[in-house]
């Protein structure tokens, strides 16, 4: 019953990349929305919003992603939702990304010089104009490199979703490895595929960083 490790197996693994990409995209987009909310709450004047956001960040930074995946996976059942690896992975990774992006972006917002806020205040800008037109565009430039860096981390983190049974790249590798008894070759292929996915992003992060350094030096 041992399968050969042939073209069909390779194609099966390579195609599984689409689930890794889909999960990464969902977590990143959801995390961007959640992260912006968390970051704004962290820098707000409202004490309870600040505390809630801080608690949320501490919780997700202080526990392993694997536990977060398990808790959401088994928790779905408790809140009356069907147990689904897809849903659990998407929700857990979105929350995870929200916490980390929230903390990264808080730092970027606070890195915009204080004088910018003062100028906006002195010109009687409201909260929305001050943020949307003055602070966030400048924070976004600072955030580009670390955000791309986090995306790389997030793509690699999706491999943990294989443990709750979500078939993405890592789990596809495990399935083929179990069937072919060629774990070294199969897992190496999986690693190479992750590398191909992540390396261009790392390069982009590096480029964004040096571009930012030049802009600041100017």
């Amino acid at each position: 019953m041992i399968r050969e490790f042939g073209t069909g197996e390779v194609i099966y693994i390579v195609l599984a990349i689409r689930w890794t990409i889909a999960l990464s995209l969902i977590a990143f987009l959801g995390g961007a929305l959640g992260g912006l909310t968390v970051a704004l709450a962290r820098v707000s004047d409202n004490t309870s919003a600040r505390l809630a956001a801080t608690g949320f960040i501490r919780l997700f930074q202080g526990t392993p992603l694997l536990m977060q995946l398990f808790i959401v996976y088994f928790g779905l059942n408790i809140v009356g939702l069907p147990t689904s690896a897809w849903l659990a992975a998407a929700v857990a990774l979105t929350l995870h990304a929200s916490a980390f992006l929230g903390e990264i972006w808080r730092g970027c917002i606070q890195a915009v010089p204080r004088g910018q806020t003062e100028a906006a205040d002195a010109l009687a800008y409201g909260y929305v104009t001050r943020l949307k037109d003055v602070i966030l565009p400048q924070a976004a430039r600072i955030a580009a490199a670390p955000t791309t860096g986090f995306l790389v981390q997030l793509i690699k983190s999706t491999s943990l979703a294989s443990i709750i049974g979500f078939t993405e790249l890592t789990r596809a590798g495990q399935v083929i490895s179990n069937a072919t008894f060629k774990p070294f070759v199969v897992i190496s292929l999986v690693a190479v595929l992750y590398f191909i996915l992540c390396w261009p992003l790392s390069l982009a992060a590096k480029r964004l960083e040096s571009r930012f350094d030049r802009a600041v030096a100017r």
Binding site: G115, E118, A119, A122, L123, Y125
Partner: peptide, 28 residues
């Protein structure tokens, strides 16, 4: 009612001079 000019100018660096000037009148 009150305009303010700062020691460090505090212009918005990501906007042109014109955009710096028109944002307030438009939004406020």
């Amino acid at each position: 009612e009150i305009g303010m000019v700062f020691q460090q100018f505090n212009l918005f660096p990501h906007m042109t001079i014109l955009e710096n000037c028109i944002l307030g009148p438009i939004k406020v």
